[in-house]
Amino acid sequence: MIFLILVRRDLSLALRQPGALLLPVVFFILVAALFPFAVGPDARLLARIAPGVVWVAALLASLLPVETLVAPDVADGTIDQIVVRGIALETWAAARLVAHWLGFALPLLIALPVAAVLLGLPALGPLALGLALGTPALAALPLLAASLTAGLRGGGALTGLIVVPLALPVLIFGVADAPGALRLLAASSLVIVALTPFAAAAALRAAD
């Protein structure tokens, strides 16, 4: 099946560059490590802001791979080869989204305990569940931004402006400690994930 072939291809290309996979994770941990230095060693304050810090760190880390997500495939003709085969760009974008999520979210979730220790986070479970639900959106929005800016020189600078406002619902529901927040987080993440392949494909078509 075309979709699975494309996912497998993306994963095998990603595994060839472990450095590119590790970079967002290292960045994530560094941002989490900055806060104890910045706000001081007040354990109670740190524990209170820890979920928010983790989410912001994850959001910032998600911006790092933007320039390598789509632009190289446009530049080297890969997208042309996909289109000429009659493969829908939506299928391509959905496959890229799945592969990118696996390459981005899994290492991030593995690194989460490290960030939790740095911030003195009391309970890991809810935050891990929230990130597992929210990271699909954090993988999807950079893919959308990358598709929108693929043809632009220096488009990378724009991606933060595109991703951060759209990620706000996910951030809000991810950090919220209210009943039902997880469901709203899942819902907003699902909407973003469902729309992204279509929006990314439309952006790529419009760019040509």
Partner: peptide, 15 residues
């Protein structure tokens, strides 16, 4: 069924 060989070779350097 159509195939294209354009200016860009769409070869990834690693594999």
């Amino acid at each position: 069924v159509t195939a294209l060989a354009g200016h860009d070779t769409a070869l990834k350097p690693g594999p």
